[in-house]
Write a protein that binds this DNA or RNA. Structure first.
Length: 466
RNA sequence: GGCCCGUUCGUCUAUCGGUUAGGACGUCAGGUUUUCAACCUGAAAAGAGGGGUUCGACUCCCCUACGGGCUGCCA
């Protein structure tokens, strides 16, 4: 009988969903969803200074955009503070923790001296074994009694067994002098209470795992399976930061990347399933496993993201694409499409989607479908017609009013050209014919514009399709 | 300083002791194309360095270098 998998994503609300965090969430989501388990979401909002409701909202929005749906309610770590304190007090009552009355100045002095003498700067509290009668009537923190000998081994699904000498562990604070719980306590208690079986998180927490292990041990709780994944780095190998470009998931949303492509690319960053590069969500859920995760950090590559996204757009269902594009416009605060525009877009999707890496590319190529009728040959409309005269576009305008850009129209127009079979026009029709034959090249509306630009052919197009 | 983790083409990666070290993105060169894009063909491009272990190491061990992380009454 295997216990059902429960994973969780526990971001601290910093104002947006970091792209690295998004990948961590994706890994947890894939692991749970691929195994029929649960994926929970907890906001680590114990730092009241930094926390704002808007910051939490931004994370939720980012998760929703990426399609990473979580089970149950969003858990607020801050709201669990009483329970965290309860655990600390229990440890105190059992003698596994103690009251430490040292002031922060004393501790700082201790560290300075230790450093000067080349000793370990881990704080050793004189109150660890002090008798209760000697306790002053003063503020205190609650510290856990760390093991002083031996070693702690972290069984990590990604990093393998990591052994840390217990002399590296100090009596860490559980409860601050104001009675509030510290992060290290809160995660352990929350993960335990939420029934989390697999903790997938950044490897910046690898060393912390040894500290957190002290609490699991003291409470006699089962330790979850840990999987510490390497962080994503920027192009210079350093930790991802602002100067590497977009950090927030929302920024990628605003750039118009399809979510299926984002999931595919992010999943492939640091994890692999043989040589598979392009895959669906279903395949990813099916294939994803902890042992496919690399131990070394990966760099974010926008070019590859674009390529993968281009493939997803090309492979997407026309109607689904239409709706995702409409959602994109809304989210980006751009004007919505009219029904007629959206219908036209969907009809022409087959010859637009194979040429776009992100939605703005696609929309740009669809300019002549989206343009309001009668078409105003303004700067925007003609900007990608560099070597077609403005005069030509103006001339064509009346003929464009009622053209429907579906496959049948294209086919008929092409037949018209074939019939005319002027040498020049025959060459022009090449890409169109290739597209209709299902071969590589696909025509853009611009291709049609070029074709439409010849008087003789225009006449035939009118006969055939208008 | 101490401890922990990492290091295969520019990038993402395959390889789980025996391969001409494979794929993808990007790049470059051709082709197709009266723009761009797309598409087709081809090319350049990698095991950080040094020691071991082994008949045989990218794969296992050690050292060094470099990179990252942790070492808070931050999360």
């Amino acid at each position: 009988m295997t216990t059902p998998v429960v994973t969780r994503f526990a971001p601290s609300p910093t104002g947006y969903l970091h792209i690295g965090g998004a990948r961590t969430a994706l890994f947890s989501w894939l692991y749970a969803r691929g195994r029929g388990g649960k994926f929970l979401l907890r906001i680590e909002d114990t730092d009241r200074q930094r926390h704002t409701p808007a910051a939490t909202e931004a994370i939720l929005q980012g998760m929703a955009w990426l399609g990473l749906d979580h089970d149950g309610d969003v858990v607020s770590q801050f709201e669990n503070a009483p329970r965290h304190a309860e655990v600390a007090l229990q440890l105190l009552a059992e003698g596994k923790a103690y009251k430490c009355f040292a002031s922060q100045e004393e501790i700082a002095a201790f560290r300075d001296q230790a450093k000067a003498e080349g000793r370990s700067i881990l704080y050793q509290s004189p109150w660890r074994d002090a008798a209760p009668e000697t306790h002053p009537d003063a503020p205190y923190v609650v510290r856990i009694k760390a093991p002083q000998t031996g070693e702690t081994v972290i069984r990590d699904a990604v990093q393998g067994d990591v052994v840390i000498g217990n002399d590296q562990l100090d009596d860490m604070v559980l409860l601050r002098s104001d009675g509030s719980p510290v992060y290290m306590l809160a995660v352990v208690v929350d993960d335990h209470d939420m029934g989390v079986t697999h903790v997938i998180r950044g490897d910046d927490h690898l060393n912390n795992a040894a500290r957190q292990m002290m609490i699991y041990t003291a409470m006699g709780w089962d330790v979850p399976v840990w999987a510490h994944i390497p962080l994503i780095h920027g192009a210079d190998g350093k930790k991802l930061s602002k100067r590497h470009g977009a950090l927030g998931a929302q920024e990628y949303q605003a750039m118009g990347f399809p979510t299926a492509g984002m999931r595919n690319y992010l999943a492939r960053l640091g994890w692999s399933h043989g040589d598979d590069e392009f895959f669906t969500d279903a395949q990813a859920q099916d294939w994803f496993d902890l042992d496919g995760i690399r131990k070394s950090p990966a760099q974010f590559d926008l070019k590859k993201l674009e390529n993968i996204c281009g493939q997803h757009i090309a492979a997407a269902d026309d109607a689904a694409l239409r709706h995702e594009i409409e959602a994109y416009l809304t989210a980006a605060g751009l004007p919505a499409l009219t029904i007629a525009q959206a219908d036209g877009l969907e009809r022409a999707m087959y010859c637009l989607k194979e040429r776009a890496k992100k939605f703005p590319d696609l929309l740009e190529k669809a300019e002549f479908i989206l343009a309001e009728r009668p078409i105003q040959p303004d700067e925007k409309a003609i900007k990608h017609l560099d070597n077609v005269s403005r005069g030509m576009l103006t001339e064509l305008t009346p003929q464009l009013q009622n053209v429907t850009w579906d496959r049948e129209t294209l086919e008929e127009a092409l037949n018209g050209f074939a019939a005319a079979h002027d040498t020049k026009f025959g060459k022009l029709a090449g890409p169109l014919r290739a597209a209709l034959a299902g071969r590589a090249a696909t025509p853009s509306v611009f291709d049609m514009m070029l074709v439409l630009g010849r008087d003789e052919s225009l006449a035939r197009l009118n006969d055939a399709a208008i």
